[in-house]
Design a protein around this nucleic acid. Structure first.
Length: 288
RNA sequence: CCCGUUAAA
């Protein structure tokens, strides 16, 4: 039965609705007793498939009108519908559903569901409302700040040209022990470089290296190196690059220093690359 | 336990 759930979900994602529905009905028929959890997961996958196909209203109708069985609705069902609404820019409807699920069904929204709302606001260029919603949820102890929410907000703020505010949020959340994925740091660094704040980007990279959350791709390093020399005096650029060599608890890894040298070479700064290699030696980092 | 959330290459 568990594999059937996964299968239904997979068929939906692959766009084969009919097959998924067929499988689902066969599952439902065979279900003897007490496997409501199992078919619930499959039903949710189907609802999600409908939403992703842009058929949110059909999904809503299915859940709230055609389905009399309360056991076939859980918090994930609501989460899916709320996401569906938000993705079709109907955040207000999503909020209504969010309200309903706790007040009239006693279901608790989780971080994923709250995040759908935040993402919905961002998509509508309503970052201000997204931030307000986020602080209501977290300050009101409904939900702890979540790494995904931070990612959503950072993305939203950056996309609306407020990268410095995004950085502030990132730092603030870091202080309360909430850090997003390395992809989000990657995005943040890119945005900072593009808005002439390569020095801040470099500092952030330094932080992520210390925390083991550094972006893994070399493109990020290239951007920082390029940005540093483009927007700052060479002395300042060197100081920032040196910052990565020093003051970390452990020496930078071979991949880190390689990536920096790579970035210097790719932007044609060969003498700077030689300088960096030399500095590495002075600071006790070995090249390979 | 299985189903839903943001994100770089």
């Amino acid at each position: 039965a568990v594999t059937c759930n996964t299968l239904v979900a997979g068929l939906c994602k692959a766009g084969s609705f009919d097959k998924a529905v067929k499988l689902f009905t066969r599952m439902a028929e065979r279900t003897k007793r007490n496997s409501t959890m199992v078919t619930l997961a499959a039903a949710n996958a189907l609802i999600d498939g409908l939403c992703r196909a842009g058929r949110v209203d059909e999904a809503l109708e299915l859940v709230f009108e055609k389905c009399k069985d309360k056991a076939m609705i859980n918090a994930v069902t609501y989460g899916i519908l709320i996401q569906g609404l938000c993705k079709s820019k109907r955040v207000e409807d999503g909020l209504r559903l969010l309200e309903e699920m706790s007040t009239s069904r006693g279901l608790n929204p989780d971080a994923a569901t709250y995040n759908s709302i935040i993402a919905g606001f961002c998509e509508l260029d309503m970052v201000e409302q997204a931030l307000e919603f986020f602080s209501n949820v977290t300050q009101g102890n409904k939900c702890a700040p979540d790494p995904v929410m931070i990612g959503t907000l950072v993305n939203g703020l950056c996309k609306s040209g407020r990268s410095l505010q995004a950085l502030e949020l990132l730092e603030e959340m870091d202080r309360v022990g909430c850090q997003p994925s390395s992809q989000v740091y990657c995005l943040m660094i890119e945005e900072l470089c593009n808005s002439g704040e390569a020095d801040k980007a470099c500092k952030l990279l330094h932080e992520t290296l210390r925390k083991g959350r550094a972006p893994a791709n070399t493109g990020t390093y290239t951007m920082i190196v390029d940005g540093l020399y483009k927007t700052h005096r060479p002395e300042k650029a060197r100081r920032h690059l040196k910052g990565i060599l020093s003051s970390s608890l452990s020496a930078p890894s071979v991949v880190t220093s390689c990536a920096i040298i790579d970035g210097l070479c790719k932007s044609g700064r060969f003498s700077e690359a030689r300088w960096f290699l030399h500095s590495m030696g002075q600071m006790g980092s070995k090249a390979n």
